[in-house]
């Protein structure tokens, strides 16, 4: 006697079929390879980046022949020699590095109380306001934000107009190094807060309460409880801010008035203004190297912070 169809629905049959198909394509003996298969897209992506770096490395070893505007066939270290010996590149590299460190320090200083208040406030309305204020800039591109500062800080901008009301003559607030750093801090603040917030959330309220119950004031609690426990967040946020600042292009270009180039601006000039792809590639590689060394030093000194994910944190 045949089994009635209703006893084994069609959907089950389909599922059986799919299971058999999956078993044929990916036998159970392959199960241990599943995590690696899931890693494949990331490996392909990183592989493409590495291929790109290899290509850039190759280009960096060739010089531009300005009689044909083709790269040389022979390999040479001439571009590296130029980058290491010409004052201009040293100035730009120093400005970028120093700028990224200053921006990181100031950003963390501002981001910490913001993130702390956002995480700890009992007021849901205040938390929402802080979140909205944090995310709003993400909807506005970096370039638009920089142009916004041109309107606010320009000679005829809101700030100078306000100063004019109290008799202060217009002053140049833009197109200098502090203006670039200011723009970068404003741009980086949301990144830092977003990196710090999870680390601060992970600090139990009870620990602060316990410290207070043992007689510690707010400052001591902050110094000996909150700050050490938030170090992973500070390190993670610091790494993100320092690398993004170091490689930034738009803010130095717009708020620097053409006189405050960072390394990315110099790279753009070589690739697109003078068509010297070899020198541009060399600068790119050196930027990658400086950024990697900087991150490596931070890893060695402070660990990877929140970027270490599940790994035991120092």
């Amino acid at each position: 006697m045949r089994t009635p169809r209703a006893a084994y629905p069609v959907t089950w049959r389909v599922m059986d079929m799919l299971e058999r198909l999956a078993a044929a394509v990916w036998p159970s003996s392959f199960q241990r390879g599943l995590p690696y298969l899931m890693l494949l897209p990331a490996i392909v992506l990183v592989g493409l980046l590495v291929l790109g770096l290899v290509q850039i490395g190759d280009t960096s070893l060739r010089v531009l022949d300005t009689s044909t505007f083709l790269m040389s066939e022979d390999y040479t270290l001439a571009n590296y020699q130029r980058v290491l010996t010409e004052n201009f590149f040293a100035t730009v590299a120093g400005r970028s590095l120093m700028g990224s460190l200053i921006v990181t320090a100031i950003t963390l200083l501002f981001a910490f109380p913001y993130a702390y208040l956002m995480v700890r406030t009992p007021s849901s309305a205040l938390r929402k306001f802080l979140l909205v204020a944090l995310f709003l800039p993400f909807f506005i591109g970096q370039v638009v934000r920089a142009y916004g500062w041109l309107i606010i800080l320009g000679n005829q901008g809101m700030v100078n107009e306000a100063l004019g009301l109290v008799g202060v003559p217009p002053m140049r607030l833009l197109y200098n190094y502090p203006a670039v750093l200011f723009g970068l801090v404003q741009y980086m603040l949301p990144f830092a807060v977003l990196m710090l917030a999870p680390a601060l959330t992970a600090i139990p309220n009870e620990l602060e309460a316990a410290a207070a119950s043992l007689g510690a004031g707010w400052v001591r609690t902050f110094r000996y409880v909150v700050l050490p426990l938030s170090r992973p967040g500070l390190v993670g946020a610091g790494l993100v801010v320092v690398t993004l600042s170091l490689t930034d292009f738009a803010i130095p270009a717009i708020l620097g008035g053409g006189t405050q180039d960072f390394i990315a601006n110099a790279i753009y000039d070589q690739f697109f203004r003078t068509s010297d792809q070899g020198l541009g590639a060399t600068l790119s590689l050196m930027l990658v190297a400086v950024g990697s060394i900087l991150v490596g030093v931070v890893f060695m000194l402070f660990g990877a912070g929140t970027l270490a994910m599940g790994e035991t944190r120092k």
């Binding site: 531009l64 300005t66 009689s67 010409e86 004052n87 201009f88 006189t259 180039d261 110099a266 000039d269």
Partner: peptide
Amino acid sequence: QVENESQWFAKFKEIMQG
């Protein structure tokens, strides 16, 4: 101009950015 532009730009930038 094209044969020397790169050097001129670099020199100008070196002066202005220094």
